[in-house]
Amino acid sequence: MAIADTLINAFTTLLVTVDPPGLAPLFLGLTTGMNRSERSQVALRGSLIAFGILAAFALFGSSVLGILGISIGAFRIAGGLLLFWIAFEMVFERRQDRKEKTKDVAITLDQIHNIAVFPLALPLIAGPGAISATILLAGSLQSSFERAQLIGVIAINLLLLFATLLIAERLDRFLGVTGRAILTRLLGVILAALAAQFVVDGTKAALSLAGGAPH
């Protein structure tokens, strides 16, 4: 796969996994009672922290897998299955319920000034799906320059997310309940297809590795 195709795939996968339109109403719920300036600070801090987390996994995720003795093919299969489960939840509206529960717990247990870290940055933005997708994508990029491009793609995605959070109130009113449901299901189908491709690529890599092993 050409580097341009890989980066487009990376952008699409991360955008769907992070799901800015789905996070907008949750962000509003997390920041209830805050003014526009305070919401902007929370959105900025949460986006920056999430970027740091995903960039770290883009740089060092594959190395950690190597230390643990996990092949990238095996991780592609596992990560693809995890992303497929997230896609299933999106299509059948289960992911939003889970995120709502995460949001409610956080408001109870954490002070309002810490919500940018938990649950906004982790796990709502840089959740298991986004982290798995980042490691999978980084595994197909070998050079430092390609990894730097992936980090650039992560930055663009989180800039889009930050912009979405800044206009969350207007976006939520514009989409409405029906619009959010349609968009979430559409993104879920796209993510399911991307997840299936990860599983196919991982299976090919695993079979290739097995075929090359000495008997």
Rank of each mutant, 00 (worst) to 15 (best):
127 G>Y: 00
122 L>F: 12
136 L>F: 13
125 I>Q: 05
116 A>D: 15
136 L>E: 12
139 G>M: 05
120 L>G: 09
143 S>Y: 00
145 F>P: 02
139 G>I: 10
140 S>M: 08
131 I>W: 01
124 L>D: 02
131 I>Q: 00
127 G>N: 05
134 T>F: 15
132 S>G: 13
139 G>N: 04
136 L>V: 15
133 A>T: 12
121 A>D: 03
143 S>H: 02
139 G>V: 04
128 P>H: 06
139 G>E: 08
140 S>R: 06
128 P>Q: 01
132 S>F: 12
124 L>P: 05
124 L>I: 03
129 G>T: 03
112 I>H: 09
140 S>H: 07
136 L>Y: 07
129 G>C: 09
142 Q>V: 10
133 A>K: 12
116 A>F: 14
132 S>A: 15
117 V>N: 10
132 S>V: 11
141 L>F: 00
139 G>F: 05
113 H>N: 13
137 L>S: 11
121 A>W: 10
142 Q>T: 12
128 P>W: 04
117 V>Q: 08
114 N>Q: 11
134 T>P: 14
123 P>T: 02
144 S>F: 06
125 I>E: 02
112 I>W: 00
122 L>A: 12
137 L>C: 12
145 F>R: 06
121 A>E: 11
133 A>M: 14
114 N>H: 07
131 I>K: 06
114 N>P: 01
115 I>L: 14
117 V>I: 15
135 I>F: 10
128 P>N: 08
132 S>C: 13
124 L>V: 05
117 V>G: 12
